[in-house]
Design a protein around this nucleic acid. Sequence first.
DNA 1: AATCATCCCAACCGCACCAGA
DNA 2: GTCTGGTGCGGTTGGGATGAT
Length: 307
Amino acid sequence: MNHSTQNLQTIKQRRSSSISINRRFSKRMMNGKRRMTSQDDEMRDMKKGPWKFEEDQVLINHVKKYGARDWSSIRSKGLLRRTGKSCRLRWVNKLRPHLKTGLKFTAEEERTVIDLQAQFGNKWAKIATYLAGRTDNDVKNFWSSRQKRLARILSSSTASSSTSQIPTFDFLPSLEAPNLSQSREEEFGANSQFGEVASPSPISAVPVEQQQPYISFPQFPLLQLDYPLLLEGQDFTGRFEAPSFLDDELGHSALGTAQVPIAPSYQALGTSESHIEVDINSLIEDDFPPIDLFDEIEPLPSPSHWS
DNA sequence: AATCATCCCAACCGCACCAGA
DNA sequence: GTCTGGTGCGGTTGGGATGAT
C-alpha cells in the first residue's frame, strides 16, 4: 500500500469514526437524561481502526495481569485509547491463544458449520464453540462469503437454465454426524494461562437418536447418483468425502441434465425458479466446495415424517 | 501489464441483556 | 422501578489480496 492510499484510508477511518461516535454521542445527549461527563469527552477521543503492535502488547499484558475481563478498565486506566468493546473484540478475534488465524476452514470444519447452522441458525458464537481455534467472526465470515458465492452461482444458473426432461433423483436419509470428539478444553488444555477457556459440549456427545427432528449431516439430502454430478459446470463427483455409497456409484456414464429443487431461502434471493438445472454430462475439475451443493436442495422432512 | 471481479477478514455498529447503583 | 455501564452477539462495511480476463 502506498502512502497516498494509506493516507486516504486513515482519513476515511478518522472521518467515519468521528461521524459514528458523534452520532451516538448526540443520540445520548438528545435523550436529555444525562449531562455531559468526562467519560463522554473520552469517548470522543477514542482511537479506532487497525490495531498497532504496541497496542496489542498493552492489551496482552493487561489480560495476563487481570484476565480476559474488565475491558473498560483498559481505557479508564489510560492504557489504551480504545473502547472496552474494541479491546474485547481484538482479544477474542486476534490475540487469544490457539486461534487458527489465517488458516482456511477444513472440509470437516465446513461440514460442522453447515450442520450446526442448520441446527442453531445464525448463532455464530455458539457454533464457534464447537470449532477449536475459530471465533464467531470466523464462522460468520465463512458463512457470509459462502452465501454470496452460492447466490451468485444460483443466479447465473437460473438465468441460463432451460427446462427439459429430466432424470429423477432418489433422496437418501441422513449420514453419520461428523465426529468432533475433541473438545476445546482438550485442545487448549484444562487450564489456559489466561483462564478463559469455554467448555462447549461436542456435538458427538449427543446421541443421534436424541437429536430428532434434527437431521444429522448432511442437513440437505444427498443425491443418489448413477452418474457423475455437475452443477454449473462444476464437478461435484467424488467430492463428498464421507458417503461411501457415492464411491460405489461413481464412474458410470453421464447423460443429459437433471433438476434439483431449490430451497425456499434461495428462492428468496430473487429467483422465481423452483429448481436448478444440474448438468450431468461434462466433467470439469475445480476446487469448489462440494457441500455448497446442499444449500440448493430442498431439505428433507424430519425423520419422523419419513414414510 | 492493466483492469475487473471476487474473496477474505478485521473492525465497527446497533441492539439486547444483565448486574449494580 | 429506573438508570447506567459493561459485555456479548449478529449484521454490516470497507479495503487489501488474489485470481480471472
